[in-house]
C-alpha cells in the first residue's frame, strides 16, 4: 500500500511536469553499450549520454546484479594479533555500484526519495539486507571501502556535466570506468531527472559485459571440466619446463 502511494506520488509530478513543459521524451545512449572481455582486457570506460528536460538536475547510476557477499571480520586475537575473528554475510549486494550526479545528492532530493531510488551509500545500506543487523551495520562502512578499493563502487557528486540543447532540453554526460574485477553480466543504467527535490523523469538502459571466445573457452574449461583443465595445465607446464631445460641447458643452482 505504502509503495503504491509512493509510486503514485512519484508518477503524478512527473506527468504534470512533462505536460507543462512539453519536452521531448528522455533518452539515453551508452558508448559502448556492450563491452567484450578479451585476453588483453584491462577494464573499460563507458560514457553515458542522456537527453533530459532543460533546467533539471541529473543523477545517473550503473548497478550490477545483486548477490550474497560473505566477508571475514578482522579483530584482535590474544590481544595482539589482527586476524579473522568471525564472518559477516550481506544479502543483495550489487557487484558494481556507480553513482554520478550534477549536484550533491542531498540537494537533489529528500532522504526518503534517495533511499527509494537507491541513490548514494546511505540508501544502499537500506537496500542491502543484513546491513541493518547490529554487527553487519557496524562493518558496513568497511564493506563500502573494500568495494571502493577494488574500484567496484564509487559515488561522484558533480560527476555529471550538463549542456543546454535548445530551450526545452539539455544533454547530461558522465563517464564510468568498469574495472577488470567487474564480472560479466547485464548492468542496469538509470538516468534520473530532479526538479525542486522531486523526480520528474527517469530513463533506463542496459550495459552488457561479456567474455570473448578465448576467455569464454578458458573459463568454461576450468569450471565445467576441472580435471581435464588441471591435466592440460600440468602437461603444458612440464613441456614448457623441458623445452626451457633443453634450450638453455642450464645447471640451476649447482655449483
Amino acid at each position: 500500500m505504502r509503495a503504491c502511494l509512493f509510486q503514485t506520488a512519484l508518477f503524478v509530478p512527473m506527468l504534470l511536469s512533462s505536460v507543462a513543459l512539453a519536452v521531448e521524451p528522455m533518452g539515453v545512449e551508452l558508448d559502448p553499450s556492450e563491452v567484450r572481455i578479451g585476453l588483453m582486457y584491462g577494464g573499460a570506460a563507458v560514457r553515458v549520454r542522456a537527453r533530459t528536460p532543460s533546467g533539471c538536475d541529473v543523477a545517473m547510476s550503473v548497478t550490477g546484479a545483486s548477490a550474497d557477499l560473505h566477508l571475514n571480520k578482522k579483530g584482535k586475537r590474544a590481544g595482539l594479533l589482527w586476524m579473522n575473528v568471525g564472518e559477516l554475510m550481506y544479502r543483495d549486494v550489487p557487484t558494481v555500484y556507480f553513482v554520478r550526479s550534477s549536484r550533491p545528492l542531498p540537494e537533489l532530493a529528500s532522504k526518503a526519495l534517495l533511499d527509494r531510488l537507491e541513490l548514494g551509500y546511505p540508501a544502499l545500506s537500506w537496500s542491502i539486507t543484513g546491513a541493518r543487523d547490529r554487527d553487519e551495520r557496524a562493518h558496513f562502512v568497511d564493506l563500502i571501502r573494500l568495494k571502493e578499493r577494488d574500484k567496484l563502487f564509487s559515488v561522484a557528486e558533480h560527476g555529471v556535466a550538463l549542456r543546454s540543447r535548445g530551450a526545452s532540453s539539455q544533454v547530461a554526460t558522465a563517464s564510468v570506468f568498469l574495472p577488470p574485477k567487474a564480472p560479466p553480466g547485464r548492468y542496469r543504467v538509470r538516468v534520473m531527472c530532479f526538479r525542486d527535490r522531486k523526480l520528474v523523469g527517469k530513463v533506463e538502459a542496459t550495459l552488457r559485459l561479456s567474455y570473448d571466445r578465448n576467455v569464454a573457452f578458458l573459463s568454461t574449461l576450468s569450471h565445467d571440466h576441472g580435471l581435464l583443465y588441471g591435466v592440460l595445465a600440468s602437461l603444458i607446464a612440464i613441456l614448457a619446463g623441458l623445452l626451457t631445460g633443453f634450450v638453455f641447458g642450464r645447471k640451476g643452482g649447482a655449483h
Binding site: 571480520k73 578482522k74 594479533l81 589482527w82 559477516l88 568497511d142
Partner: peptide, 13 residues
C-alpha cells in the same frame, strides 16, 4: 601484517 591494524576491518572470504 599481524601486529598493525588493517585499514579495512573486513576481507573477502
Amino acid at each position: 601484517g599481524l601486529l598493525s591494524r588493517p585499514d579495512i576491518l573486513v576481507a573477502y572470504r
